[in-house]
């Protein structure tokens, strides 16, 4: 992510993200009732947070692949931080607490194994 062309491409990406998001936000504000959401899409929207967040979260914490040896020493800090994070999220529902405890666990386990 360096160099002038990289910077320009990155701006293009950010502006495309912005245009897309503004289109979604502005749709009904600007065009009123002239748009319809298909019922299936409306139903599926209820599950977008659970599904998309899972798709981002799971591979960040669990990195295994068929036929590949799992490097437990390398992955253990993430697993520990993830478990502590889940417990903290359920118990406190506070993102700052989860961040503090999760990072502390990551550093702690890294130091223990390091």
């Amino acid at each position: 992510m360096s160099g002038a062309s990289g910077a320009a491409a990155l701006w293009a990406l950010l502006l495309a993200m912005a245009a897309l998001t503004l289109t979604l936000r502005g749709s009904f504000f600007v065009f009123g009732d002239r748009i319809r959401i298909p019922p299936l899409v409306r139903r599926a929207l209820d599950y977008v947070p659970a599904a998309v967040l899972a798709a981002i979260v799971a591979p960040a914490f669990v990195q295994v692949a068929p036929g590949e040896a799992v490097d437990v020493l390398e992955q253990a800090p993430r697993w520990a931080a993830g478990l502590v994070g889940v417990a903290a999220a359920l118990l406190t529902r506070n993102m700052l607490v989860v961040l503090a405890l999760g990072m502390a666990t990551l550093w702690g386990v890294q130091a223990l194994l390091g």
């Binding site: 947070p49 659970a50 967040l53 960040a60 994070g85 999220a89 989860v98």
Partner: peptide
Amino acid sequence: PLVFLTLW
């Protein structure tokens, strides 16, 4: 990932 874990 920790933020996303919390949200999830």
